[in-house]
Amino acid sequence: MSEYLSDHVHLSDDGTAVVILDQTQLPNRTQYLTLRTAREMYDAIQSLQVRGAPCIGICAAYDLYVLAQQADAALSAADFLSKLREQAKYLASSRPTAVNLRWALDRMLHTAEHCADRADRLSVLRDECLAIHKEDIAMCRSIAEYGLSLVKDGDGILTHCNAGPLATSRYGTALGPLFLGKERGYKFHVFSDETRPLLQGARLTSYELSRGGIDVTLICDNMASLVMKNGWVQACFVGCDRVAANGDAANKIGTSGVAILAKHYGIPFYVLGPTSTIDLNCATGEDIPIEQRDPEEIKEKFYAEPMALPEVKCYNPAFDVTDHTLISGIVTEYGICRPPYTESLRAVFDKKHAGIPFGAPEEEHA
């Protein structure tokens, strides 16, 4: 994989800014942005210059650390925390569906709240945001290990949207097993849905896989049924932006349709994501807020001229929710959760809260 795939969100050399790869410019241009203000950070997340639920969380943690540095050093602990909470709330409003954003900001706030020494608060926050990034790399590796155990050499895999290194760190989640398998000599063939309306499967997933030396074929979303019917797909791997306590999973719009097709054709459908994406306080998918984006993304974005009349109305939700009954397994860094998800997801968090290390022994999947 290209080296940038493990370093597409990071602190600047002097630690006073966040540097991101502008994903809206891919695959044609490789451009980096330097974020210094809260508005620049908000806009980068909202406009999808940085995207992917885990990656947004990593970026937000770095953002809050950078903003903390800009606070007046003379502020009292109470005033400092008040300012930090205000900035965290602002950043959290940029994307309402992905739970990782709020999770990372809450974790940074919790760290700040428990730092009694004013002189140490910035160094403690720096350590925390770096830890969040490092942990995501380890989680993605573990998810990749477990995911690889679900497929075999030569399988055809269909994926929707983008859940590779660009959306996370290093291996990615849904694409993690494919990159890890490639390292071990597996030969997969991947069908990448273009994924309307932002074409992230076309612009990002096919780009990552092709650059990584994995056989990939780009298809339009409405071709998924045909490639499944032809017997070219043995498993579906998708990422997630939020998983409810009952296993309902929100992912990029069109994911639920893929799951319905997979069910019809008897193909296992797996959701892959870290436990930071699971929201046990959200009972079902009905409780997940669905982001509504600018209708012009459908009519005009990526086109030289508008593809619909100005008066034509558009409905442009960014996500849909896949019902838990359609999901064969939810792959986390702690293992593969199976139905009933109300029990298996809770068991994962019991391990997490007990401090049990995550990770899948490589020899299990050799």
Rank of each mutant, 00 (worst) to 15 (best):
H189D: 06
H10I: 07
V66L: 07
A354N: 03
G172V: 10
L130A: 06
T159S: 04
R293N: 11
H365Y: 15
S276R: 05
G285K: 11
C55P: 07
V348F: 08
T205L: 00
G355T: 05
E128G: 01
G156W: 01
G254N: 01
G254H: 09
G247W: 05
V227G: 10
C337F: 08
S169T: 13
R293S: 10
T217Y: 04
L150M: 08
H110Q: 15
T342K: 11
Q87P: 04
D14R: 07
A138C: 12
P177N: 04
C240W: 04
V321A: 02
K263I: 01
L122C: 10
T322G: 06
E343C: 04
Y303A: 11
L226C: 12
A259N: 09
E86W: 12
H114I: 07
Y207T: 10
E135Y: 02
S2L: 14
S82D: 15
N162P: 06
D127R: 09
L280P: 02
E208M: 03
A224W: 00
L198V: 10
K134P: 05
H353F: 15
S82N: 14
E40I: 07
D63F: 15
V271W: 03
A249H: 02
S210K: 11
V50D: 02
N316E: 09
L33I: 12
S93H: 03
S94F: 06
P310E: 11
D241E: 10
L209W: 00
A167P: 07
D294M: 12
S149E: 10
L180P: 01
V238I: 09
L21P: 00
V99G: 05
P197Q: 08
M228Y: 03
A366Q: 13
A104Y: 03
K89A: 15
R36K: 15
T255P: 08
I336F: 08
I45F: 11
T217L: 05
D323H: 14
M307H: 14
I327L: 12
Y146K: 06
R95E: 11
V151W: 08
P268R: 06
P339K: 04
K134E: 15
A88C: 13
D127P: 00
D221S: 02
T284F: 08
V19F: 08
D127A: 15
Y303K: 05
A138W: 10
I336R: 05
G335V: 07
C282R: 04
I157D: 00
L125A: 03
C236F: 04
L26A: 09
M1S: 14
L180Q: 04
